Amino acid sequence: MTILVTGGTGYIGSHTCVELLNAGLEIVIIDNLSNSSIQALNRMKEITGKEISFYKTDLLNKSEVERVFIEHQIEAVIHFAGYKSVGESVQAPLRYYHNNLTGTFILCEVMEKYGVHKMVFSSSATVYGLQDQTPLSENLPLQATNPYGRTKLMIEEILRDVYTANQNWSIALLRYFNPVGAHSSGRIGEDPNGIPNNLVPYITQVTAGKLSELSIFGNDYPTRDGTGIRDYIHVVDLAEGHVKALNKVMNSTGVNAYNLGTGSGYSVMEMVQAFEKVTGRRIPYKVIDRRPGDIGISYADATKADVELSWKASRGLMEMCEDSWRWQKNNPNGYKEELVTLSK
């Protein structure tokens, strides 16, 4: 079975590709490498010992997307490709709406043309917006609060309409919480451009001395230590969730949303303390004002994924920290140190 993975050299995409290959599936990757490295592709091959068909192209290039479907017998698509920075989306909303929505339109049009109706979509817990309750379940009203989150929410609604028009479609909408960690080999991991937006790569870069100190946004939340609590999930658990979701869509029709999280949360200070324990190093930090719109506690109700996908996160906090730190130590500048050549 051949699976098309859009955005397959990115952080979550690359880990998912490894799990797909380990499950005995063939994959084809489309990625424009705007926020990833071709070196991730080489390392996926190294980890799995498998070949991977790769197309350096953009989903906005419809003729090139069609070429992939002409040259391969695609049976399902896992759709990661899209811009993903909340802050950047606020500064450049039209760029985000054009890229994320139009790319999905073109992908779905080509899938429809070639009779491929199975999709796993990379959504996000940002579609829940600011809720006054936790845990967050899939049946809550959706209310994204920034352009990035709204692109995810709009695409979810578009995909529901696609199914209404043609009920051959089977689509899983995977709402991620806070992916962290890296492959246990230390060969693939999160490689942010510039200063990281997310907590864990920021912590690892401070620990490695690349950044001077960690900024903690508020310590006066109604939590056990005053810092915000989030549902951090190991990226390999997340990747395994995609394999389970793929199995589901291959054997059903309809559109279903699933939270992929652990169902519990860790505070910012608990993350800092865990990294200090793993690394044996002190992590300097300063507490600054809360960010507008941040809430104290957010974590998933992951019951539906357990019941319907037979999936549950299994890796704990220390494993998340150990794997994140191994990646940082082995790759102090991410993938950027290696000269690469692109064959296709």
Rank of each mutant, 00 (worst) to 15 (best):
N193G: 09
F54G: 04
S298T: 14
T57P: 04
H72D: 09
V243S: 12
T6W: 13
Y221S: 04
K113I: 08
S122A: 15
V206Q: 02
Y96R: 02
D306E: 15
S212M: 02
E157G: 14
L107I: 03
V206F: 02
S343K: 15
P141K: 06
L153H: 08
K312D: 03
N256M: 08
M271W: 08
L140G: 13
Q273D: 12
I38P: 00
D31Q: 02
G7R: 01
H98R: 10
K118I: 03
L214S: 02
V307T: 08
K152I: 03
T207V: 03
L309W: 08
K286S: 12
V307C: 04
G194N: 04
Y11V: 05
S314K: 14
G115A: 12
K336V: 01
V116H: 10
D58M: 03
V272T: 01
D225N: 07
I283F: 02
V272K: 15
V116W: 10
R224W: 07
T227W: 09
Q328H: 09
L101Y: 13
Y83S: 05
V5Y: 10
G296E: 00
S252F: 06
G228H: 08
N193H: 12
T253A: 06
H15A: 12
M250N: 09
G7L: 00
P222C: 06
V68P: 11
H242C: 13
R95P: 00
E66D: 04
E322R: 14
V340L: 04
M119H: 05
A239D: 07
W327G: 09
S122P: 07
Y335N: 01
N32Y: 13
V255A: 08
Q143K: 14
V287M: 06
V86F: 03
N259H: 00
R150P: 01
Q205Y: 06
M320G: 05
Y114R: 13
S298W: 15
T223F: 05
V268T: 15
L260E: 02
V68T: 13
L94T: 06
K113M: 07
R315P: 03
Q328L: 05
V278A: 14
I3T: 06
A125L: 05
G103I: 03
T151R: 06
G103P: 04
E337C: 06
P147R: 07
N333G: 09
G49N: 15
G209F: 08
T279Q: 11
Q205K: 15
R160T: 04
I233H: 04
T48Y: 12
G87D: 15
Y128I: 12
V268S: 01
P135S: 10
M44L: 11
E322I: 12
I52N: 10
E322P: 02
V77P: 13
N178F: 15
Y83K: 15
V127L: 11
